[in-house]
Simulated assay, not measured.
Amino acid sequence: MNVALFALGGTISVSGGPGHDGLVPRLTGADITAAVPGVTELGVKLDVRDTQAVPSANLTFAEMLDVVAAASTAVRNGAIGAVVTQGTDTLEETAFLADLVWPHEEPLVFTGAMRNPTLAGADGPANVLAAVRVAASDHGRSLGALVVLNDEIHAARWVRKAHSTSTATFASPNAGPLGQVVEGRVRVLAMPRRHEPLPSPAGRLAERPDAARVALHVVALDDDGALLRAVADTCDGLVVAGFGVGHVPSALAPELGALAEHMPVVLTSRTGSGSVLRNTYGAVGSERDLLRRGLVNGGLLDPYKARVLLRLLLASGAGREEISAAFARHG
């Protein structure tokens, strides 16, 4: 049995003390796995590959889709699962992107670290060990892409990074973790329904990195909408992170309605949990008003995940009806 492990950059891969330029990636995938106590006793051979050794803030859609494609090839060639180690800054987005296109029953598990190897209590080794356990377990099958840190198993579609420094940073506010790793056992307590995978536009995005540019606008107190006026000329879609259940200042409603006539505009909540409503409030700028103006309801998706889904759909050539249907399924 073998598990493919793809080592990217991030906190889990840095070494040496901080200098004038701060910590930088230095550890290879082999270095990372060599520091994991107990991994050789799992009875699983690790096929370790190094790729995209950069901070996760520098990762692109095309690069991550290439990593997913490589993991998919490894599974087709006999791997029982795959693990991706990367920085945690964008992990909630990259894991969701992977989940949207992952076609296999075999697990695709994302992990990382909050404390680098130079610190007491570095959490990278424990996270890698738990991730490999999940990737190699029958209990991890048919769950899509997963995020495993702090001995918790989260669905990529629900997980969020909720704290800037805590080792317990990853949480799933709307659903909770799917399970845990306890005394070396993978315990899955919830089985979310899988969606059909979407086509991967990796080739198009590699050729044209600016393809399907999607803006994200976070609505704030006394927002006059001035920043929205450049969106029509520079972007192919927009995600709006509205107040509460999906509200914006009334002055923004006509601006958003006009944009929705020319591009998909997805309405989400900036709160980080809970759903955008449909039929409760009726004032100008409320969710009912905005949906009447043509905005797409983002449902339970937070703004960052909504942007990932919208860009993936646009890069794949999806039309307005397909986009609305996809958000109805995933949101």
Rank of each mutant, 00 (worst) to 15 (best):
G203A: 15
C235W: 07
R270F: 04
R278S: 14
F110R: 09
N116T: 05
R229L: 09
A113H: 02
S13G: 15
S72K: 05
A206C: 02
G285C: 02
H217K: 05
N77R: 14
G274R: 09
R26H: 15
G285W: 10
T73P: 12
P303R: 07
E105Q: 09
V266W: 08
G9T: 13
T271L: 09
A135I: 12
G112C: 02
L42A: 07
L27T: 01
T169K: 03
D224T: 13
R185V: 14
K45D: 06
T268Q: 14
S13V: 07
N279T: 13
R213K: 10
G274M: 07
L143C: 04
L146H: 04
G124I: 01
A318W: 08
P201T: 09
L65S: 10
P173T: 02
G29E: 09
A131W: 00
L259F: 03
G294L: 00
T169Q: 10
S273W: 15
R141K: 14
V44T: 10
D210W: 11
R160W: 07
P103S: 08
V84M: 00
L198S: 06
L178W: 08
R288P: 05
C235S: 13
H217I: 08
K161Y: 08
V83S: 02
S269C: 08
D138N: 15
V109I: 08
L5R: 06
V75P: 05
M64Q: 15
E106G: 09
F6D: 04
I80P: 02
P192K: 10
A57R: 06
E196F: 07
L8G: 14
P18H: 15
V101N: 08
N150Q: 08
F61Q: 04
G22H: 10
G121I: 00
H330S: 03
M263V: 11
A220Q: 12
T51I: 06
P55V: 12
V240F: 01
A171I: 12
G282A: 08
G237Y: 01
A220H: 15
